[in-house]
Amino acid sequence: MSATTVPNPTTWDRVRTYSPASRYLPVVATFALFIGMFGFGGISYQGFFDWQVFLSLLLDNSFLIVLAVGMTFVILSGGIDLSVGSVVALSTMIAAKTMEMGWSPYLSMATVLLVGTLLGTLMGVLVHYLDIEPFIATLAGLFLARGLTYLISKNSIPITDETFVELAFASITLPGGYYTTWTVVIALATVVVAAYVLARTRFGRTVYAVGGNEASAMLMGLRVAVVKVGVYAISGFCAALGGLLFALYTLSGYSLHAVGMELDAIAAVVIGGTLLTGGRGFVVGSLLGVLVLGTIQTFISFDGTLNSWWTRIAIGVLLLVFVVVQRLMTRRQS
């Protein structure tokens, strides 16, 4: 065989050949869906086509964005994390309780993030080292976090710390008279950092490798253990951070906060085009997924005739569509 001569690739060649579009197709689809829904809203409802509507969408869902980011890591690695809703509740409770006890808000927030990360790490250890199925291990996490929350207080505790409240209400004025809050900035920053980690770091690529084929990743000598524990630690951290954003949003800690929010996070990730079996997907897709969910809610609040439960049904239907399409796609490939 004569060695085929490969001409030095030009930049154009690299642009042309690098990463086939099919990988981005699900994200593109979600983006189109979001644009379509937003456009539909703009045509149907008065005042929908306002940047502020979009900004509110981010504001009202900032905590969910952060949760979805953490969930993306876990799902990409082939796992699932059912505990995030409970960790959010626990986080709001720890924040409220410690501040009520007079802790500095910074110390309080640091504690929340530490607890969340620890809980996540613990679940990761159960999953990887003890070979417990992810959904059972994180089910234990769900019970544990919810139980701890109840143990701290059964009742809602308001957050009155001045610094914290100030942070909650501080708004950032954007050009054109629009405004947003720090929670949105934090959420978007999380997305950017996560996107970088997943796309450009060894840890991130190993997450994809583990999700693609764990046994292979092991035989390739990759650090599977670090990744498998790490993704749950990240998800725990994100859940705690999401809990802080939720506390900023509601200014209270309550044991019944965020019931079922893990489902929203999972739904957002799936609707964002991430394969539930792992290995394929992007954080940006999860962001878009959250925005799609948020848009449904916005629709329903703009449309006086629809009731809130239509949100859940619509999310269920979207989830179904994405899951079935994913299934058909993977079936065709195999």
Partner: peptide, 27 residues
């Protein structure tokens, strides 16, 4: 084949020892 199908050929060849720049992978 014990590689991962969802990553690129280059990543499959070099994962675990990819060239890095500023802490990130130099694609």
């Amino acid at each position: 084949v014990n590689l991962v199908p969802n990553l690129t050929v280059a990543e499959n060849m070099l994962l675990g020892r990819e060239p890095r720049r500023f802490g990130g992978i130099n694609m």
